[in-house]
Amino acid sequence: MAGQDCQVNAHITQQVLRPVRGHARSAVATLVLAGVAVATRAGWQVRLATAGLPPSGPPDQGDGRHRPLTGLENAYHVVSALADAATLLCAIAFLLWLLRVRDNAHVLSGRPPRHAWPWVLLGWIVPVAQLWVPRGIVVDVHQRSAPKERVPRAVNWWWGLWLAGIPSGVLTSSASTDEVIARAYTDVRLLLAADAAVVAAAVAAVFVVRELTAVQQKRLGGAG
Rank of each mutant, 00 (worst) to 15 (best):
W157M: 09
S176E: 13
E149G: 00
E149I: 01
G160R: 12
S174K: 09
R144K: 11
A146H: 03
A164M: 12
R135T: 09
A116D: 13
L171P: 00
L163Q: 03
G123M: 03
R150E: 15
V141I: 15
Q143S: 11
V126K: 02
H106L: 06
V141G: 04
G165R: 07
S145G: 14
V155A: 06
V170G: 00
E179K: 13
V120W: 01
H142N: 04
V155R: 08
G169C: 07
G165K: 09
H142E: 04
V151N: 04
V155E: 09
L121R: 02
G110C: 01
V151F: 03
A129N: 00
V138G: 03
P134Y: 07
R114F: 07
P134T: 06
I125E: 03
G169K: 07
S168H: 01
R150S: 15
S174F: 12
G165A: 05
V128S: 01
E149S: 14
W159L: 11
T177C: 05
L108F: 05
I137R: 02
L171M: 14
L121P: 04
G160L: 11
S145H: 01
G123S: 09
V107N: 00
P113W: 02
G160Q: 08
G160C: 09
P134G: 05
V151C: 05
I125Y: 11
V170C: 12
P118I: 03
Q143C: 08
V138M: 08
V126A: 13
E149M: 07
